[in-house]
């Protein structure tokens, strides 16, 4: 089951005229993983997803699904299904008709269609809303319907294009858990495009950080977060300080920075900002070379030995917490 349904990019490229949107990227997604394509807008992550879905032509290179080249197949014959950013529900069709749309296109008879659609709606907990029109649903409900519609085709890979961006923060966290649960239950590969690093960290088994049409770093989520390879990745994932040291830039997690006496410290700084965040306190310090670093202290540590604005502090860290960065 696992091996044969892996998704692979082989120097996958997308050009729009002169501009390169995706520049010969290679990656191998293991079957059944929840993968996030993460990056700022315009980095090529959406183009990549749309190429996998078949809504964007592949300029060169290929996309393999289970060893089969799907780069030039029509969307419905790829074994993928896409969930669109704005859900793209058909406004003139009821929820049940929306979910059963692909079956109708295949000529499945009405009774069977309604039954299958009912099952899918049950999966996403929307059985009670079958007769409504999309406009009569809330954002979160529309998203569940869109999920059901995508899953009814029994895809091997579900593609999600910024699925949570239209929801309010509270709902976003709930839907996040829902997506994770569905992926676990169905055991299929999810490829999820997002620009939110918290979303990616919360959901993904693997993350692919993209920047400027290229993959900046990819791998197991924890591995990437714990050891960012470039300054871009460290900054984009957040909670990291990128510090230029004499022997090259390093990334240090803000919770790995220790504040202490200036004597014997690796770096000296002056506190410029103190931000209380509930469980933590974030201290910003200006250090030599016009750089700023942020240290995260637990509230207990901070209030045990409070610091003042403008106070000189020493910054220290364990050797293994500093990760040298590629230029």
């Amino acid at each position: 089951m696992t091996r044969e349904l892996d998704v692979e990019f082989v120097s996958l490229t997308k050009r729009y005229g002169e501009t390169l949107a995706v520049d010969a990227i290679n990656y191998h997604f293991h079957a059944g993983t929840y993968a996030c394509l993460l990056g700022p807008s315009g980095c090529g992550k959406s183009s990549t997803l749309r190429m996998v879905a078949g809504h964007e032509s592949v300029s060169s290179g290929s996309i393999l699904l289970g060893g089969r080249d799907i780069s030039h197949l029509p969307p419905a014959r790829r074994g993928t299904a896409m969930m669109f950013q704005n859900y793209a529900l058909f406004p003139h069709l009821s929820v049940t008709e929306n979910v059963g749309f692909s079956l109708k296109m295949r000529g499945v008879e009405a009774a069977k269609r309604a039954k299958r659609a009912g099952e899918m709606l049950e999966l996403v907990d929307m059985s009670a809303y079958g007769d409504r029109l999309p406009a009569q649903l809330s954002g979160g409900q529309q998203q569940r319907v869109a999920l059901a519609r995508a899953l009814i085709t029994e895809p091997q890979v579900l593609l999600l294009d910024e699925p949570l961006s239209a929801l309010d923060p509270f709902l976003r966290i709930r839907m996040r858990a829902e997506l994770k649960r569905l992926q676990r239950e169905l055991g299929i590969t999810f490829i999820h495009v997002t620009h939110g690093q918290d979303e990616a960290l919360a959901l993904a088994d693997e993350i692919v950080v993209m920047n400027d049409a290229k993959i900046e770093q990819a791998g197991k989520t924890r591995a990437v977060f714990d050891a960012p390879a470039t300054a871009f990745v460290a900054r984009f994932l957040g909670s990291h300080n990128v510090i230029a040291l004499p022997d090259g830039p390093v990334a240090i997690r803000s919770d790995a920075l220790q504040l202490g006496a200036t004597k014997d410290a690796r770096l000296e700084g002056r506190i410029t900002n103190i931000e209380y965040q509930g469980t933590h306190v974030a201290l910003t310090a200006a250090i030599a070379g016009d750089q700023e670093v942020t240290a995260l202290m637990s509230d207990r540590d901070f209030f045990g030995a409070p610091k003042e604005l403008g106070e000189a502090v020493g910054l220290d860290w364990e050797g293994q917490d500093a990760h040298a960065l590629r230029a």
Binding site: P75, A76, R77, S102, M105
Partner: peptide, 10 residues
Amino acid sequence: SLIEAAADAG
């Protein structure tokens, strides 16, 4: 994207 959704549905 409705047109794409339709294509996605075959």
